[in-house]
C-alpha cells in the first residue's frame, strides 16, 4: 500500500493550507500534488508522494550519507 515516489517540486499554488498544491515533476511526468502535509516545503526540493499527497521532504544530505556508506563497502571488497 505504500507506493510512494520522489519528485521535484516545481511550483506552489493555493493560500488555504488545506488546499495548498504543488506541481511535482517525476522525470518528465508532472502531477498536481497536495502539499497540505508539508507546509514548509520549498520549490526545488524533492518530496515523497503517496496517493496524491506529499508526505515527506527528501533530505539530500542523508541520501548522500547512504551513498557514501555504499562506496566504502565497495572499497572494502577485495
Amino acid at each position: 500500500m505504500c507506493l510512494a515516489v520522489p519528485g521535484q517540486l516545481l511550483s506552489v499554488t493555493g493560500e488555504d493550507p488545506l488546499f495548498r498544491r504543488g506541481r511535482v515533476a517525476f522525470g518528465p511526468l508532472v502531477k498536481e500534488i497536495s502539499l497540505a502535509c508539508l507546509p514548509e516545503v520549498k520549490v526545488g526540493q524533492y518530496v515523497l508522494v503517496h496517493a496524491g499527497i506529499a508526505i515527506s521532504a527528501i533530505d539530500a544530505e542523508e541520501a548522500q550519507r547512504v551513498l557514501a556508506l555504499l562506496e566504502s563497502l565497495e572499497e572494502d571488497e577485495p
Binding site: M1, C2, A4, D16, F19, H50, A51, G52, I53, I55
Partner: peptide, 20 residues
Amino acid sequence: AVGFETTAPAHALAVLQAHN
C-alpha cells in the same frame, strides 16, 4: 479508505477538505 499509517493523512485530508 483502506491503508496503513502512510495513507491515513490522505484520508484525513479528504474528510477535512469535504468538511471545509
